[in-house]
Design a protein around this nucleic acid. Sequence first.
DNA 1: CTGTATCCCATACGATACTG
DNA 2: CAGTATCGTATGGGATACAG
Lengths: 118, 118
Amino acid sequence: MESISSKKLQFRGKEYPCCASLTMGIIGGKWKTVILFHLINEKLRYNQLRKLMPSVTERTLSLQLKALEEDKLIKRKVYTTKPPLKVEYSLTDFGKTLVPLIQSIADWGDLVVEKYAN
Amino acid sequence: MESISSKKLQFRGKEYPCCASLTMGIIGGKWKTVILFHLINEKLRYNQLRKLMPSVTERTLSLQLKALEEDKLIKRKVYTTKPPLKVEYSLTDFGKTLVPLIQSIADWGDLVVEKYAN
DNA sequence: CTGTATCCCATACGATACTG
DNA sequence: CAGTATCGTATGGGATACAG
């Protein structure tokens, strides 16, 4: 019998006090869920993402993509055939396990806008 | 016909570029989902929350509770009958609309620990 | 018991210029 | 096209002491 839920959880070297905080540690922050949301249904190139997220800076987008890639949620494929560099980002199988959650996050946001917005 | 999803969303005075970022703006950060998670099934007092979250500081817990209260996700009830001050936090009806989402967030964290942890 | 007040720091994020 | 480099700022959050 476990007394209380004080077990520390670990993932990729980081410790979390709770399963909920582990998830937030991975998809938290201002942009990660937005990126994942846009990648649910299609692979996207760097500039396509920028157009879908006009308010993110190049630097931040780059950093967030790298972080998501490090956590194996997305994969980065480079097409080096011809000079105009082409890179496609898409969800990994692991990242796809997040799809229902990302969808729920987006849906709740929509709900709030519809029913509770000022 | 909407060209692209570039409509700005608003909630409580803040603007968000995407429904997913709106949700994250409200429940994001290191502790909010953890607090909400613990409040799913029971009202809890300040010190009970502290014991469930040993690694949060008093200041931070206080600030996050206040933020959640401002966003009307939780309510704070004070029992002033006798000197030992007693305060209970619980989900509002609006906060309860988040329960499935919080549960999904926690579940995905659990999944990761079970199947993908190092 | 339930918090506030101060102080401080790390990190996330933005702006802008520049590169392979 | 797909990023880096550099610099600056804002905010989230920790440590500790104290207050109603």
